[in-house]
Simulated scan of single mutants.
Amino acid sequence: MDDPRRPENRLAYRAAIDRPRLTLPGAKRVAIWPVVNVEHWLIDNPMPRQILVPPTAASLLPDLPNWAWHEYGMRVGFWRMLEAFATRDIRPTLSINGSVCEAYPRVAGAAHEAGWEFMAHGFHQVPTHRVADEPGMIARTVAAITRFTGAAPRGWLGPGLTETLDTPDHLTAAGIAYVGDFVVDDRPCRVATRHGPLVALPYSVELNDIPLLAIQHHRADEFVERALVNLDRLAMEAASDGPLGGAKVMGFAIHPYITGVPHRIGLLERLLDALAARDDVVFMQGSELLDWYLGTGDDA
């Protein structure tokens, strides 16, 4: 328990009711943080996710059907998402494997041209625990994104939100300033590392199409309904004079091979329209949230 690398030691407990009231630009109540995840699945490896269980439950390589499920998202689904955001003048954060810059330059280039912020997401879509040289993988990811975009990424999301006990130290050593893996609050907070604090932004594991649709198998419209109910509550709390008052952040996460398919893309469009119609929210990218939070003076 005394190991300073343990999450509970890196991330000091702070009750929500004890935190200071924060204010967003324009006195908005909730910052919306949309995150689009694009990944590189290697046909040589077991697939990170499966839509089709192999016959007799035997693991087979190459896993062509599940590889192709994801590949559809990169060839078709991504472009539906790009249009959905572009036509509404919304710029999400792109959680991107470093190798996508090399394997799918058309996808990475379109996102960069559209003004999406690149948040590093590992080099390949492989759990961090299975990487032999974690600092080397992080450096390779940062270098690939920097070469492609001309700017080093400021944020990191582990593949599947995976981290070892040493990951935060490796990230800050590589120049990463914020991370989405610590989904512990409705507001940003600080994670202690050997190289200074790392800011944890409110990513989401519940407003996320993988657990909601691909794992738990809810009806597709549950995504929109859950997001809007979640937002209503956050906005109500933010406007209150009670102990939970003050600005909140609502992140949501989508993947081209899940939400970018024909029978679900309309849900994203519906959600974006509902969010854009509100006058109490503001869309922000990861770096914008980071800079805003660091400027509040909160030291949580």
Rank of each mutant, 00 (worst) to 15 (best):
residue 61 L to P: 11
residue 62 P to F: 06
residue 62 P to I: 10
residue 64 L to N: 12
residue 66 N to E: 11
residue 69 W to C: 13
residue 69 W to S: 12
residue 73 G to A: 10
residue 74 M to F: 06
residue 76 V to G: 10
residue 76 V to R: 08
residue 78 F to D: 00
residue 78 F to C: 04
residue 79 W to N: 06
residue 79 W to S: 02
residue 80 R to L: 11
residue 80 R to W: 14
residue 85 F to E: 06
residue 86 A to G: 03
residue 87 T to I: 14
residue 88 R to E: 10
residue 88 R to Y: 12
residue 88 R to Q: 10
residue 89 D to S: 08
residue 89 D to R: 15
residue 93 T to H: 05
residue 93 T to D: 04
residue 94 L to T: 00
residue 95 S to D: 04
residue 96 I to V: 15
residue 98 G to Y: 07
residue 100 V to W: 05
residue 100 V to P: 04
residue 101 C to R: 04
residue 105 P to H: 07
residue 105 P to R: 10
residue 106 R to P: 09
residue 107 V to N: 01
residue 108 A to T: 02
residue 111 A to C: 12
residue 111 A to V: 06
residue 114 A to W: 00
residue 118 F to I: 12
residue 118 F to H: 08
residue 124 H to G: 07
residue 125 Q to N: 15
residue 126 V to C: 06
residue 126 V to Y: 07
residue 126 V to W: 04
residue 129 H to G: 14
residue 130 R to T: 14
residue 131 V to A: 12
residue 132 A to L: 15
residue 133 D to Q: 10
residue 134 E to W: 00
residue 135 P to S: 02
residue 138 I to N: 02
residue 139 A to P: 01
residue 141 T to K: 04
residue 142 V to P: 00
residue 144 A to N: 04
residue 146 T to K: 07
residue 147 R to W: 01
residue 148 F to D: 05
residue 148 F to E: 08
residue 152 A to S: 08
residue 153 P to H: 09
residue 154 R to H: 12
residue 155 G to M: 00
residue 156 W to N: 01
residue 156 W to F: 05
residue 158 G to N: 08
residue 160 G to W: 07
residue 163 E to T: 15
residue 163 E to A: 11
residue 163 E to I: 11
residue 165 L to H: 13
residue 166 D to R: 09
residue 167 T to E: 02
residue 169 D to T: 07
residue 171 L to E: 02
residue 171 L to D: 02
residue 172 T to L: 05
residue 172 T to E: 04
residue 172 T to K: 05
residue 173 A to H: 07
residue 173 A to C: 13
residue 176 I to P: 00
residue 177 A to N: 03
residue 177 A to F: 01
residue 177 A to L: 11
residue 181 D to H: 00
residue 182 F to P: 06
residue 182 F to M: 14
